[in-house]
Amino acid sequence: MPNKESGSQEALTPDQREELLATLKARFEKNMIRHEGLVWADVQAKLEALPDKLRSLYEMERTGGEPDVIGQDSETGEYMFYDCSAESPKGRRSICYDREALESRKQHKPEHSAVEMAAEMGIELLTEAQYRELQKLGNYDMKTSSWVQTPERIRKLGGALFCDRRYDTVFVYHNGAESYYGARGFRGSLRV
């Protein structure tokens, strides 16, 4: 698995690249239920042709997301990667929703925001629909929660949405966008 040193936008070293591809391949083969009918060699060929996407996957892995292919877009042919860690990625917790929320805090500011962190990684926060789609593939966020993309009308009023799974049910909640908790992070998606 890639090391946990801080992320950057530099190209991956050959060793980082090979280690990441080996990790992704092992996860892909272990979890075929997430992507029935897809072939790893096809996914890898696409990844090798798109170093920026490979860099984003490295950041997803480095921050604890355990990214995996969850399907393929029938129109574009793009593979869809989601964070598939059992709980919200450890390296992305204790963050508020976005830059505006971060700046609105007068004291005890978190180190980062979910929207900005995702943008820096080259990924997007899951939507509520994508979060529910992921939950059909397993049980995620049984002890944690994850920020999801929030509709502008809710965000303009100061709120933001997050989801989790409890009592064998997926719940969607709201909170002030400036809030942050040790058990709340975000899950991302990447199209390759």
Rank of each mutant, 00 (worst) to 15 (best):
M121K: 05
K156Y: 04
N139I: 04
S145L: 07
A101I: 07
R166A: 12
R187P: 11
F171W: 15
I154W: 10
A160K: 02
A119F: 02
A129I: 09
G185V: 06
T150L: 14
R166T: 05
I154G: 14
F171R: 08
D164C: 04
G158F: 02
G176L: 13
A129C: 03
E111C: 13
A160R: 04
R165C: 13
G159L: 03
K136W: 05
Q130R: 12
P151L: 02
V115Q: 00
G122C: 08
A160N: 05
P151W: 01
C163T: 01
F186V: 01
G188R: 04
D168E: 03
V115C: 09
E103Q: 07
E152G: 01
E100D: 07
S113V: 10
H112I: 04
R132M: 09
I154D: 12
F162W: 08
V170A: 15
S146K: 11
R153Q: 09
L126F: 01
A160H: 06
E111A: 12
A118I: 07
K109L: 06
Q130C: 06
Q135V: 09
E178S: 14
R132H: 06
S104R: 15
H174I: 05
E100C: 02
L125R: 05
E116I: 10
A101L: 04
I123V: 13
S104P: 15
E103V: 11
T144A: 02
T169M: 13
R132A: 03
R166V: 03
K156P: 04
T144F: 00
S145H: 05
H112Q: 15
W147H: 08
A160P: 02
G188W: 04
Y140N: 08
D141E: 01
G158Y: 05
S179T: 10
W147E: 07
